[in-house]
Design a protein around this nucleic acid. Structure first.
Length: 660
RNA sequence: GCCGGCAUAGCUCAGCUGGUAGAGCAUCUGAUUUGUAAUCAGAGGGCCGGGGGUUCGAGUCCCUCUGCCGGCACCA
């Protein structure tokens, strides 16, 4: 032991400087040694790149970096300590509450508690106050590594059953780290700040309380989760709260109401009533997709929405998906006098694939027909659980931009390679520049031989690589019937949405007996590729609304132009302007109300109308219009024909533009 | 489905500890003919989400159903 005590470690700092200390020195000591101010500012450290407590002894030569408030890691530390400080505050206020886990999440943290009484908004104020008291105390944060039995006994003695479970779950060989924030104790991986006073007292806020299952399993008890946000300083917190307000303003449910796009009502939860403005967007989008798919070699079809259970039994949906299906039962034959009350059970289709196989199965298919790309704007219904519905984003009745590609195993790669650029181009046209690709590979429980999985996974991956090396693999996350690619796009405020998908299926063609005649004259099974780009029209329009905050690009805007009169003497001329716009295929409306032009401009601008053409006496005399574009200050007076041509040119859908 | 919250005029919301409803915007009517983000005046408008209960009396308290909101779970 004495050898060790005398031994020295060489510490290399980020600027390359080397310093020598006794073995077991700590980051705190080194920081204080470098300078008094650094010693004070130090929050934590990195030992050989790994974030660690300042109090952690350094036993070997190491790279050491001191983490201060400027460091990116500081935020995470602050949030993590907030979680502990909040848990301590809660237990000081209500000692009977049992603590569980409290990780850092985007912008803040949460902590799950087991408490009989629900937390109320009033409780939040009390908890925040208590947290500030704890911060003001500047209680030191200390840590020890305990052995498992001791930790378990400790938590049993303290009546913290969840902590006992957590300790038991820590894998052999991993340290069981106990932390104290002052007198209050928690099990934690760490690292933590040096003392509670390093958390800014004015830069955190408790946001909301929500239910959450213990360990995320719905069979377990529901706990109460308190979410909070924390930042380096008051200004950042304020900026974040402002950002949340801005995000709320682009909520598609709110904009949908304001712009009269759609509504949903109690008698049809999760089903959309599209209003004229919303339906205009929908149809414009559908027309666009129809052109894109036709150009990409897809044949559009249409299949029934109500189908006998027999088909669902054959496809496997009856067994695996029934609880998500709308089922109808009707009496047949009772009136005809035959067998009374024969029941026939149908289901509303939750997916289009079985129907598409039926179309494929009509007539004998040759290998020369493959790949066969069968597209449908398929109206589907799924009985989604009541708690999962959300505006247009998660509904029970929706229409997919669905297609199935029937092909040979050898064609999977080529079809994948065709699909990805099509998807990218469509996303770009919709205003989304970037997206992520995820490859999900074979799960434990699966159908199909290893050979075919090997082949399909390799085909998907190789096709992706032709486009980009920027993709992630999610092992074991594939469907039981085949591997898949998922595509996630990023919207204007940085949120990600999974829309596109490209999935191989080895099972359904088998179950529904799809086959083709191969070149050698034998019958073979095709592989089926399920694929969608938008996902569903409903959800995608929801995403579009939030992405542009209701200010649609001209080609998608439901009302492209409003002609607004300044004086009633201009009414007749305004009518002519309207006709000219409509003749050019533009969606235009006229506003001859007895209101000031200020009023009209304000109202139509608020409604996100892209172009307002104001006409007064001057315009009538000169045959001009005064054009005002949304988002721009001021206006331009120009001859009517010129204005119409300019607007019409801008309103051409992106796939039909000359400049491509 | 689970936990918590919410449901009042077309919209956004107020209505304290129970005493048969109120504002702004919108709508309608009238005046005003107006030059680029709100002209003025007046009027109409509500089974207070549905059902049940407590009470002399319920928008307000209790139970229940439905829907919505925030999460969680789900999303072969």
């Amino acid at each position: 032991m004495s050898d060790v005590a005398e031994a020295q470690v060489e510490i290399t700092l980020p600027d390359g400087a080397k310093r020598t200390y006794g073995t077991g020195t700590t980051g705190a000591e080194v920081a204080a040694d470098i300078s008094k101010s650094l010693g004070k500012a130090a929050l934590a450290c990195r030992i050989d790149g790994k974030l660690a407590d300042l109090s952690q002894p350094i036993e070997h030569d190491a790279q050491l970096a001191i983490v201060t408030a400027k460091d990116d890691a500081a935020l995470e530390l602050i949030r993590h300590d907030c979680a502990h400080i909040m848990a301590r505050a809660v237990q000081e206020l209500w000692p009977e509450v049992k603590v569980t886990i409290g990780p850092v999440v985007d912008n803040g943290w949460y902590y799950d508690f087991d408490r009989e009484e629900p937390f109320s908004d009033e409780d939040f104020a009390a908890i925040e106050k208590k947290m500030r008291e704890i911060i003001a105390k500047r209680d030191p944060v200390t840590t020890e590594v305990w052995d498992r039995d001791r930790a378990i006994r400790y938590y049993e003695a303290n009546n913290e059953p969840y902590k006992v479970e957590l300790v038991e779950a820590i894998p052999e060989g991993e340290p069981i780290r106990m932390y104290w924030h002052g007198h209050w104790q928690d099990l934690c991986r760490g690292p933590h700040l040096v003392h509670t006073g390093q958390v800014p007292a004015d830069a955190f806020k408790l946001m909301r309380v929500a239910g959450a299952y213990w360990r995320g399993d719905s069979r377990n008890k529901m706990l109460q989760r308190i979410y909070g946000v924390a930042f380096r300083n008051k200004e950042d917190l304020k900026a974040h709260l402002t950002m949340l307000e801005e995000a709320a303003k682009r909520d598609h449910r709110r904009i949908g109401k304001e712009m009269e796009l759609f509504h949903i009502q109690e008698e049809a939860p999760g089903m959309v009533f599209w209003h004229p403005n919303g339906w205009s967007i929908y149809r414009t989008l559908e027309d666009y997709m129809r052109r894109r798919l036709a150009k990409a070699g897809y044949k559009e079809i249409r299949t029934p929405q109500v189908v006998d259970r027999v088909l669902w039994e054959r496809s496997g949906h009856w067994e695996n998906y029934r609880e998500n299906m709308f089922i109808t039962e009707i009496d047949e034959g009772s009136e005809a006098g035959g067998h009374a009350n024969q029941k026939r059970t149908n289901a509303l289709k939750p997916m289009n694939c079985p129907c598409h196989v039926q179309v494929f199965n009509q007539g004998l298919k040759s290998y020369r027909d493959l790949p066969l790309r069968m597209a449908e704007f398929g109206a589907c219904h799924r009985y989604e659980s009541s708690g999962s519905m959300h505006g247009l984003m998660r509904v029970r009745g929706f229409t997919q931009d669905d297609a199935h590609i029937f092909c040979t195993e050898d064609q999977i790669e080529e079809e994948t390679a065709r699909f990805i650029p099509l998807l990218a181009s469509i996303y770009r046209d919709m205003g989304f520049e970037s997206f992520e690709i995820k490859l999900s590979t074979r799960p434990e429980k699966r159908a199909g031989s290893d050979e075919i999985w090997d082949k399909a996974e390799a085909a998907l991956e190789s096709a992706v690589r032709k486009v980009t090396n920027d993709y992630v693999i999610d092992p074991g996350e594939g469907a039981f019937y085949g591997p898949k690619l998922d595509f996630k796009l990023t919207d204007a405020i940085g949120r990600e949405w999974q829309c596109g998908t490209f999935q191989a299926d080895f099972v359904l063609p088998e179950r529904l007996g799809a086959e083709y005649v191969a070149a050698d004259g034998t019958k073979k099974r095709p592989v089926m590729m399920h694929r969608a780009i938008l996902g569903s029209f409903e959800r995608f329009i929801g995403i579009l609304i939030e992405n542009c905050a209701g200010r649609f690009p001209l080609w998608l805007a439901p009302r492209q132009v409003v002609v607004a009169t300044i004086v009633s003497d201009a009414d007749e001329y305004a009518g002519n302007v309207l006709e000219a716009l409509k003749d050019s295929g533009l969606r235009a409306e006229i506003d001859t109300r007895n209101e000031k032009i200020n009023y009209k401009v304000r109202e139509h601008s608020a409604a996100h109308v892209p172009v307002i053409l104001a006409v007064g006496r001057q315009e009538v005399e000169q045959g001009t219009v005064s054009m005002r574009k949304l988002g721009e200050q001021g206006q331009k007076v120009m001859p009517l024909a010129e204005a119409v041509a300019a607007i019409a040119a801008e309103a051409v859908p992106p796939d039909l533009r000359e400049d491509g």
